[in-house]
Amino acid sequence: MADSAASGSVDKSVQVKLVLLGEAAVGKSSVVLRFVSNEFQANKEPTIGAAFLTQKCRLEDRVLRYEIWDTAGQERFHSLAPMYYRNAQAAVVVYDVTKATSLEKAKSWVKELQRQANPNIVIALAGNKVDLVQASASSPSVPASSESEDEADDATATPGETPSSSEPESLRQVPREEAQAYATEAGLLFFETSAKTGEGIVDIFTEIAKKIPIEHILAATRGAAGRPGASGSRPGAAAEGSVNLDGNTKPKDACNC
């Protein structure tokens, strides 16, 4: 693994593999699109397996290269997910603040990641579509998308419970506090986001970048170069299959940065 010889030896960027997980239609692809190209549009998203995108970011003097795997799909693709989250250094687990079940699904993803993925993985929980539960006044600078469906309901911080009759309807089903409490307990970064308005999106990736042990990744990369026969680390390779369902993960240490 002659890393220096491999691509972009000039480039001092650190490569970070990040995977997006969450129930269908919570807005994973939209979050990525907002982050990567700062736009929001009806998706023509990947439908098979996962989409793969890259985005370089600058953090202080260092360039980070996010390799983003936006998993797609129905429940039945779930068993393929390990193929995408293996070796990931970061994960964004997305739910939809207007759909209570999506948080349950998110929790189950978190559990799975914590048990099956890279043990050092940095996980962020993102409650998306927060624009739907905010009063239009309180929503932050929304240049592009002021669509008709921007309901004006109270920017109440105590959502969910008992929407009084004066307040037509709060779509919120997941109180911020509840998700925050869960995230704290499970040791996750937590954000409420809107791919539509852009709120909170960049913050996810920034905070992840801060939390990622970059030195560690670099060190691992350097270390790997000298390690003999990396293939030896896959003793069960034959039994493993090309789709790794066993969730056996090994820290990825090859990296062409």
């Binding site: 982050f35 990567v36 098979i48 995108l53 970011c57 970048a209 801060k210």
Partner: peptide, 27 residues
């Protein structure tokens, strides 16, 4: 790695110059 990372809200933004080329979604 932790200590060595600047912790404040550092200048972390998508790198504008690099953006265009990277929007590629392969599958």
């Amino acid at each position: 790695g932790k200590g060595s990372l600047p912790s404040s809200n550092s200048s972390y933004t998508p790198h504008p110059m690099l953006q265009a080329a990277n929007i590629a979604s392969f599958m």
